[in-house]
């Protein structure tokens, strides 16, 4: 096959996206674990590690720009390169949401959790599962799985509603809980946004494979 070096560059770009994806997946897990266990070292680890995530994102962006400048990718290669430029932004933002959660963990330094976490870890697990499968679809250029994953955003939205209603009851029953309930609500919001970002990634997977720019699932929030 001609242009072997070019093909290797494109493959390398794809691989780097997967690495970035697994970094932010781990960050989300670490963040929610740090909250569930009030593990402040772990939370600080997530915050520190975000610098590495951001660095990786810029590294991929620079590589993609270099490929465009030097190889002039066309057709499916062009779509893949452009899709990657967008996907890494979404991945980096997911990393930022993990940092947001870790910071909320640190806010609990002198206060216990309002309640044991039940739905928040479920939201996190769901969002991470969507993220991992979206990256699988990205690797396999699979349109239908990408569309299906984006639809699952509704489940995360439903969990968010549930968390919101539950936290409201705490706040109404005892105004002293309002600050801690609000913190947990922020955590839920960060998780909800993560699933939205996964939806964006799925849209890019569809674009890369088909050239169609579509909004697959409009979030309720």
């Amino acid at each position: 096959m001609p242009r072997d070096a070019y093909q290797r560059e494109l493959q390398h770009l794809h691989d780097q996206v997967l690495i970035l994806g697994s970094m932010v997946d781990k960050a989300v897990d670490e963040a929610i674990q740090s909250l569930a266990r009030r593990d402040f070292d772990r939370a600080r680890g997530v915050i520190d590690e975000d610098r590495v995530v951001n660095g990786k994102r810029f590294e991929i962006e620079e590589q993609a720009i270099r490929v465009i400048a030097t190889q002039q990718p066309m057709a499916s290669d062009l779509r893949a390169t452009v899709a990657i430029l967008y996907i890494i932004v979404d991945l980096e933002r997911i990393g930022d949401y993990a940092v947001g959660i870790a910071k909320i963990t640190l806010m609990h330094a002198d206060k216990p959790l309002l309640k044991p976490l039940v739905d928040l870890p479920r939201m996190a697990e769901k969002a991470r599962d969507m993220l991992r499968r979206a990256l699988d679809a990205f690797v396999a250029h699979s349109v239908e799985p990408a569309r299906a994953i984006a639809q699952e955003d509704d489940e995360v939205d439903a969990l968010y509603d549930q968390v919101y209603r539950e936290l409201l009851t705490y706040m109404m029953a005892d105004p002293h809980t309002i600050d801690r309930a609000t913190w947990l609500l922020w955590v839920a919001h960060n998780l909800e946004r993560i699933a939205d970002r996964v939806t964006n990634i799925c849209e890019r997977v569809v674009y890369e494979a088909t050239g169609q720019m579509v909004e697959i699932n409009v979030s309720t929030y």
């Binding site: 096959m1 066309m74 057709a75 499916s76 290669d77 050239g211």
Partner: peptide, 20 residues
């Protein structure tokens, strides 16, 4: 704009992307 971003034919795709 379509031929160079999303060609319909596999052979056109391969040529435009430099695969042959």
């Amino acid at each position: 704009s379509e031929v160079f971003t999303n060609p319909r034919d596999r052979r056109a795709e391969d040529y435009i992307t430099g695969r042959f």
